[in-house]
Amino acid sequence: MKKFIVHILICASILFIVDKLAYFILKETPKHLYDTRLKKVLDGEMNKELIILGSSKGAGNIIASQIEKETGYDSYNLSYMGSNVIFHEFILRKLLKHNKAPKIVLLTIDNPQTLINEKSLSYRFDKLYPLSVYNEVNDELIAQNDRSILSQFFLMGRLSKAHINYSNEKPSKDNPLLEDGSMPFIRVNPKSKREFVERSILYDKTLEMESKLEALNSIQNQCEANNIQLYYVFSPKMFNFNSAFYKRFLKLINSEKEIFKYDNNSLYTLKTSYFDQSHLMIHSAKVFTKEISEFIKSHNP
């Protein structure tokens, strides 16, 4: 028995040392990231006056540096392609924890997918994995049921595939990340479908997810508590506007004045304005951004 226990203790000690070695990998990984936006948030380097949150509609259709130029607000885009409202809430929470609260937050809304279970919009765990050296990121992964509670005790438990192939994340040729955090679409992808489509304008409220409603509510509460002006942005698409969702959404906010809905610009009726059915090309994104700047200026004279 003595020999057995001694051997178990030797194994445990070596495992302990190996575990601690994992710290170097964990620490090194964030330095090699291509997209450092979240890291900047966690490091308190995101003290901006205007922040854009959202999915690809926010990342590709709104250009932060242009807003900055047109409104005078120091702006940054923290939108992530394919992310959902729960992820946006996480970004805002961390932003407010580590940085000076912005004056304005633009939250782009996916009409009508924001509150329902939509495959193309997810919690971007992959953006968190390389940053799991931060305890709060690891805690978030545990809270999201993506990681074992063991990772609180074992550093190896924080390792993931992301720590092996983080360098695989390369700039997209379609929409590279700009310095202001925006990712406008700069070239036409021949594979993209660019057809205007008539879609159902019905909206089934029963499909809404409680967790997404809570996230939206939390964003509203955090903005209110920190005196942040929250605006909701509806982007143009090649689908008809779902007014049933819009009506439903109005009930979830304080006033319609908080909503910016794209203008009836004829540009948005041209195929050439789009990268695909949901995203604008850079030239039309500039027009859309200009409309947003005008809206901000009119609401904040």
Binding site: I10, I14, A22, D146, S148, M156, G157
Partner: peptide
């Protein structure tokens, strides 16, 4: 032997799938 067992444990942590 120990190195091999530690290697298996590291793989377990590294490729910890969704439980």
């Amino acid at each position: 032997k120990l190195a091999f067992y530690i290697f298996l444990i590291v793989l377990m942590f590294l490729f910890y799938g969704k439980e």
